[in-house]
Computed example of a mutant assay.
Amino acid sequence: MDLPIVVGVDGSGPSLRAVDWAADEAALRGAQLRLVYASLWDRYEGALLAQELDRPKEEVMAQDVVGTARLRAERRRPGVPVGTDVVGEEPEEALVRESRGALAVVLGCRGRGGVTEALLGSVSLTVAGRAHCPVIVLRGSHDNRAGAAPRGPVVLGVGEKPTVSAAARFAAEEAVLRRVPLEAVRAWRHPAHATTAHSLFAGEPARFEEQRAAEAVEEALADVPAGLEVTRRAVEGHARDVLVAASHEAGLLVVGARHRHGPFGLHLGRVVHGVLHHAACPVAVVPEAS
C-alpha cells in the first residue's frame, strides 16, 4: 500500500502553507496527500479562515477547515490525490498515530520568537519527538519559501553516531528528488584540554577534532547514490549554531533524532530542539533507531 504524506491542518495561515509544501512534496514523490484536522472543539476559533469564508468565526466548523485545505491542495497540484479526516482528539496524539502509516508528517509553525513561538510550537515539538516517520516543520519565511520546489541544497546535520542513518538516506533521497546538491555538515569544538592521547595529533588537539568530524561526514555519506553532487563540511562551533547558519542558504535541513526519555516523557535533544526554533528553512526531523 502506498503511504500518504500527512498534513496537520487547523485553518491558520501557517497550516495552509504547510498544505502547499506537502502538495509539492507529494507531487515529487508520486504520493497521495492526507489532510488531518484534530481538535477537542467543534469550531475553529480563529479569524483568518473566517475572513476567507466571509463568515463569523463562531460558524466556521472543522469540515470548513479541511475543505478549504483540500481545495487549496487541489488547486496547487491538481494531479495529487487528496483525502481528509476530522478527529475529535488532541492534535499531538492524532498526528503521532497518523505517523505510523505515513511517508512523512508536515506541520506549519506559528510565531517567530519569544513566548509566542514556545506556546504555538508545542504541537510541532511533541509530534517531532514522538513520530514514527519524518516530520517536516516549516521554519523560515513561509510566504517565500513554503514550497518543496528546489530553492537551495538539502543540508544534512551529521550527528553523534555518524554511521549511515535514516536521516542520511532521507536527505539524499530529497536531494535526488529536488535535483539539488546535498551538503553534509558536522560541527566540532576545540577541546577543553590541550593534550590528546592520539600520537599523530599530539600537541594539535584542534586538528585532531576537525579530522574526526571530517571522518564522521564521510562515514555518514557511505551510501549516497552515485552522481549526486555532495559538499562535505566540518565546521567549528556549537552544533545548533552551525546548522542554523547553514539553514539560511538551504531548501531543507535534515536532522536525525533518537527519542529520549525525560521527566515529562519523550523529548528531543537540545540540537534538534534548537534548530526547530531557529532554522531559516523547513526542518525534517527523522527518527533514528535507538
Rank of each mutant, 00 (worst) to 15 (best):
A149V: 03
L266C: 06
V185S: 09
A197L: 14
S247E: 12
V36C: 00
A175D: 10
R179S: 15
G147Y: 00
R112Y: 12
A216T: 01
R29G: 09
S199M: 10
A104W: 03
L28K: 01
P191V: 08
H267V: 07
F208G: 01
R270S: 15
V271S: 01
E25A: 09
E74C: 02
P4L: 03
V155D: 02
A222Q: 11
G203P: 09
V66A: 00
D223M: 07
L40C: 05
S99Q: 00
T126R: 12
A27P: 13
D85Q: 13
G11T: 07
L156D: 05
G11H: 02
E45T: 03
R240P: 03
A168W: 01
C133H: 04
L120Q: 09
S199D: 14
R110D: 11
Q211F: 04
V137R: 04
G30E: 10
L16K: 00
S141G: 10
Q63S: 14
Q32V: 05
E93W: 01
A73L: 03
H273M: 10
L107P: 04
A280P: 02
A168I: 11
R112E: 12
D64Q: 12
E288M: 02
L156T: 11
G159S: 06
P14S: 05
L33G: 01
C109N: 06
H261V: 15
Q32N: 10
G111S: 09
G256M: 07
G111P: 12
M61L: 15
A128I: 05
M1H: 13
V185W: 06
L138F: 11
K161N: 13
R139Y: 05
G262E: 10
L228W: 12
G237L: 12
P263F: 03
R70Q: 15
A213W: 09
G262T: 14
A131S: 09
H277N: 06
L200Y: 15
F170A: 09
T68H: 15
V275Y: 11
K161H: 14
S290Y: 05
A131N: 02
P134H: 09
W41M: 12
D54Y: 10
R258K: 11
P78M: 15
A168Q: 09
A284W: 01
Q51K: 11
G111A: 08
R112Q: 14
V164T: 12
R43P: 00
W21T: 03
A62W: 02
L252P: 02
V65E: 02
H190F: 08
P162R: 03
L119G: 03
P287Q: 04
A175L: 08
A234I: 09
V96F: 00
P162V: 08
H277G: 03
T116W: 04
A31D: 13
V80S: 13
L40I: 07
Q211E: 13
A213F: 10
A284P: 01
A167H: 00
T231R: 14
V60L: 09
